[in-house]
Design a protein around this nucleic acid. Sequence first.
DNA 1: GCTTAACATTGACCCGGATCAAGACCTTCT
DNA 2: AGAAGGTCTTGATCCGGGTCAATGTTAAGC
Lengths: 249, 249
Amino acid sequence: MQHAPNQLVARDRCATCPIRERAVCTYSSEDEIARLEQLKYYRTFAPGQEIAAAGETTNFLGSVVEGVVALSKTMADGRRQMVGLMFPSDFIGRPMREAPPYDAVAVTQVRLCMFPRQRFEALLLQTPSLERRLLEMMLDELDAARDWMLLLGRKTAREKIATFLLIIARRVALGGKRDGVDGLEFELPITREAMADYLGLTIETVSRQFTNLRKDGVIVLRDARHVRIPDFAALLDAAGEDADGGVIA
Amino acid sequence: MQHAPNQLVARDRCATCPIRERAVCTYSSEDEIARLEQLKYYRTFAPGQEIAAAGETTNFLGSVVEGVVALSKTMADGRRQMVGLMFPSDFIGRPMREAPPYDAVAVTQVRLCMFPRQRFEALLLQTPSLERRLLEMMLDELDAARDWMLLLGRKTAREKIATFLLIIARRVALGGKRDGVDGLEFELPITREAMADYLGLTIETVSRQFTNLRKDGVIVLRDARHVRIPDFAALLDAAGEDADGGVIA
DNA sequence: GCTTAACATTGACCCGGATCAAGACCTTCT
DNA sequence: AGAAGGTCTTGATCCGGGTCAATGTTAAGC
């Protein structure tokens, strides 16, 4: 880190915040932002570091500014299922409840814009613009969770991998790092193990399906973490999506 | 039906509404209720009847008053996954979006308290108490969806069935129909096929696991639709839950 | 350079749940 | 009563993905 934790630098001001237009504060007015600015603080987490633990009182809520956070549930015998993958602007934490029902772990280097839980919840009650945006975001997450239920319950391993790649591809495209005309290339933010946890598979099956998709020409692997999509339609097809998905193409 | 659709009867008044204390209107004041009362209308649906279709503009939102509604997604080739099972007081519809991303179908005879979508959304913007309750309900649904992701991704067929029975048992217990000390008995609100869609299984596997649980004494079947739980702890165990779940026991 | 450890791939084999097929049970209709 | 159709159960077989095990790859540390 290049500066003391509480020292303000340019990127710490909400006005220049990279997620100002998409995070929970999107609809907040100038003076609402001012109030949030008093409350907020930043913290960074190293890859693998725990951000919050299931069932344990958590005294903050906040937004992902940089990096990727995994939410997951673990059964008594160790079986684990990831239930959310949070990217910049996503909101972390369970308002109106002391403890989250899942673990939150930093997958990459993560930077969080955090608020003390109780004070944020109090502010929420007085600030309809915050509440509205939060409702909107939770509705989107609920939709995403339901898409994921379809994937977990009904898709084949191959379709699961393809769908995952689609989601990452779209995230990347939104992030503006769009490549040349002839294909989208991006880095996978998570390990094979994390993918397996996310997709309800084992590491081995994940690996095998990567190999299959590569052999079939749906993806090109520069190395294990760098994927290129030469033909987006082929990926859509492999994912078992009705070819609605012009989101990028 | 015993009365004309728009004729007010006792059960149509919000004050005596069976879900007044749990639905989206829970936090609404007397005059907010009055406004809702002007907007609302009731409709009943027969088992199997479609309430809303994925991707099609839907001009209402509302609460389940009686009966059970299934939300599900279907892939192009017919594979189907249920993504929600809605009971009385649950909220149906996707605020802030024209069309829902899933189908909604009446599973039993259903009675809905409905609001015209646009007028409800307008009211929502002016009524923090509605918005707060809706946020709370969506957060709960998100938690439930994530529990379901764990089930779909990691549980065995036997655990899936046991978990489903647990959920129904808890719903029933909340509904107050608690039985004698030596066991809880209830009626399954949905067919084997709907269970299969919910649990990411086939009908045959559902049927076989019912048989297994019966042979193991975890459940007693009066007939295919009536289940008795002689030993709640055994069911908890079969569901693979950490024995937290004192919710009933 | 070598060692170590995390991450990833590949192969051999197995098993849980899907598929295919038959039949039982229960309403409702004629 | 008999027929018809929906629902559920059971059996035989198959296969996708899990499990177990070995090997390859990469980067960090000494």
